[in-house]
Simulated scan of single mutants.
Amino acid sequence: MKTKLFQQNPIEAMQFDGTNFKDITKWGCKVILYKPNDHLVIMHGEVDKVVKKGAYIIKSSNGWFHPVRKDVFESNYKPVVLT
């Protein structure tokens, strides 16, 4: 069977810089624990997920928030330029 190529749809994302937890909560992401300049813990469905400083949080099409390591995010997603 021949493989096919697939492309991901644009997603909303925000990088956690260690200080912007208020922006992340305003965005709709439920932050359970915040340790300044280190990490935060977000609610992902019924599971808590750690987001380390520098990592990205993406909002999926079902409205769930997912942490993604910086290197993984930057190798898979490129900024969308709106014209």
Rank of each mutant, 00 (worst) to 15 (best):
P67M: 09
G54I: 07
H66W: 10
N9C: 04
M1C: 06
D48L: 03
V72S: 15
E12C: 02
Q7G: 01
F65H: 10
L40M: 15
D71S: 13
T3C: 02
V50M: 10
E46K: 03
D71P: 00
H44W: 00
L82G: 04
G63A: 10
D17F: 06
V80Y: 12
K59A: 03
G18P: 03
S75W: 00
C29F: 03
I11Q: 09
T25Q: 14
V51S: 05
V80H: 05
G54C: 05
Y56Q: 00
D23G: 15
L82A: 07
V72L: 14
M14P: 00
G28N: 10
D17H: 08
K2S: 13
M14W: 02
E12H: 06
I42H: 03
M43Q: 15
I57M: 01
Q8I: 09
W27A: 14
I42T: 02
K49M: 04
T19M: 06
T25Y: 08
V47T: 08
G63R: 10
S61L: 07
A13V: 01
K59C: 12
A55W: 06
G63S: 08
T83Q: 07
W27N: 08
N37A: 14
T83V: 12
S60H: 03
K52M: 13
K26V: 05
G63C: 04
H66L: 10
V81H: 10
K22S: 13
K35E: 15
P79N: 04
T83A: 08
K49W: 01
E74N: 14
G63L: 09
D71M: 10
V81P: 00
S61K: 12
M14T: 11
E46R: 00
T25V: 10
V41W: 00
L5Y: 09
K26R: 14
C29S: 10
V41P: 02
W64D: 09
S60M: 09
P10M: 08
V68N: 03
K4S: 11
K22M: 10
K78Y: 05
F65L: 02
V50R: 10
A13P: 02
N20G: 08
Q8C: 06
A13C: 11
V31M: 05
V41Q: 06
Q8P: 01
R69M: 13
P67D: 11
Y77G: 01
N20L: 06
T3H: 06
K22H: 13
I11M: 08
K70P: 00
V80K: 15
D17V: 07
C29H: 07
G45C: 04
W64G: 05
E12Y: 11
F6Y: 12
Y34R: 07
Y77R: 07
Y56T: 05
M1A: 13
Y34W: 13
Y77P: 00
T83H: 02
K78Q: 12
K53F: 00
H66S: 04
Y77F: 15
L40F: 03
E12T: 04
H66P: 00
F6R: 06
F65M: 03
